[in-house]
Nucleic acid binder design. Structure first.
Lengths: 216, 216
DNA sequence: CGACACTTTGACGCACTTCAAAGGGGGTGG
DNA sequence: CCACCCCCTTTGAAGTGCGTCAAAGTGTCG
């Protein structure tokens, strides 16, 4: 068994594929708002979104809610922190996810280093996503919303049509804003013809140039 | 060679120790504000702080600066993102760091799985730190400063005396605030006897109870 | 078709920023 | 060793972006 540099420090490979989770994972169907795991529960499993969307969240002492991340088809989640989940995870919409026991994955990794490779790739991607999230959070409201739209455009389509699976409240809690501010900002972006709201959850990026300048 | 669950998904082990980086790393001395690597440079090396302190930062289009992280003795840095550094890294004070080529570490990991284990532990710790940073950034100014003081107390001493290696500007850019707001908040915390400023960079946590309630 | 939840819009207040100036504090040169 | 000076920090006053409170509009599912 030989391990080369690219397997230990993999580049960002395609996120969908027939990896260990696909082979060993058990499928699970979830209704809207169904809890997948709770805050502080032991982190025994990893999850991969097949269809639908998942959010991780955390309730603060004063009742505010912070969304840690949104996970879309192909994304892996459940690896936050060491032994216990720091966030809870819920389905945003009707969803299907694959579930795999971490211990089973570890056993497999012992025999097949492409599995360890896959795991490192996933972790690196999560690291990059969190850094992106930090960068967004220090900006103004308009920059946060624009940054969010760009992120979603890149993840759900790559094109200019963005279908948002989550509510304004979810977006607000992800960006550390209120729903009113998110709504007002969206309206403003529409006023200046930077975006078009085909419906509340269908958005077209009309002018990436303008949006880019608003992105800080 | 056998790999068990805890080596693939390690718990948070002690961060100092005689790991691969200590054995193979090359020592490097840095003056205050010396750049260790720049934004967008290829990420060929990993680094470990021996003494002093390091910050990672990024300059936005409009000149604002975001601090990604502070690294203290024992901390490993340079693993942000896939192939290129998303942040630059500079020494905050006179510092000594160990440098190791990632490819060398990867080769070692192929023969000794405790190295891969060590790498995963480091990555997991970084993941947890970023989540903490996100949580801090959605709060009010006072909560951010208190959260920062708690974080530093835990990292530099564990006790109530906090020696800050970084300037108010660094703190402000880490927390997404202005230096004036940081300064005012510190003064306020001193007024209510929650902390004591022995000097600008020596702070004593006088009342963790009060500080805890201010931490959201 | 009607009811309810989500979203948008409006008015006002406050926390943080901005602009400005007055303290320190520590390091260097005399 | 002390004093001066520069830079970092603190403090003050005024402006503003976002939050809060309130109400109207919109889509959707029974």
């Amino acid at each position: 068994m030989k391990v080369n540099a690219s397997s230990i420090f993999p580049t960002m490979a395609g996120k969908t594929g027939a990896g260990a989770i696909e082979q060993m994972g058990v499928s699970m169907n979830l209704k809207r708002d169904a809890e997948i795991y709770g805050e502080n529960e032991p982190a025994e499993y990893l999850y991969k979104v097949v269809s639908g969307a998942v959010r991780t969240s955390r309730i603060l002492a004063d009742g505010r809610r912070q969304i840690g991340a949104f996970f879309l088809p192909g994304d892996v989640f459940g690896l936050e922190s060491g032994m216990a989940h720091a966030f809870s995870a819920e389905a945003i919409a009707e969803s299907r996810v694959l579930v795999i026991k971490r211990s089973a994955l570890a056993a497999l990794a012992a025999r097949d280093n492409t599995v360890a490779q896959e795991f490192l790739t996933i972790t690196n991607r999560e690291l990059a996503r969190l850094q992106q999230h930090v960068m967004v959070l220090i900006k103004t409201a308009e920059e946060r919303v624009v940054g969010f739209l760009f992120e979603m455009a890149a993840r759900v389509s790559g094109k200019n049509l963005v279908e948002l699976p989550m509510s304004r409240r979810d977006i607000a809690d992800y960006l550390g804003l209120t729903i009113e501010t998110v709504s007002r900002t969206m309206s403003h972006l529409e006023d200046i013809a930077a975006i078009e709201l085909q419906s509340k959850r269908r958005i077209i990026l009309r002018n990436r140039g303008v949006l880019g300048t608003l992105n800080g």
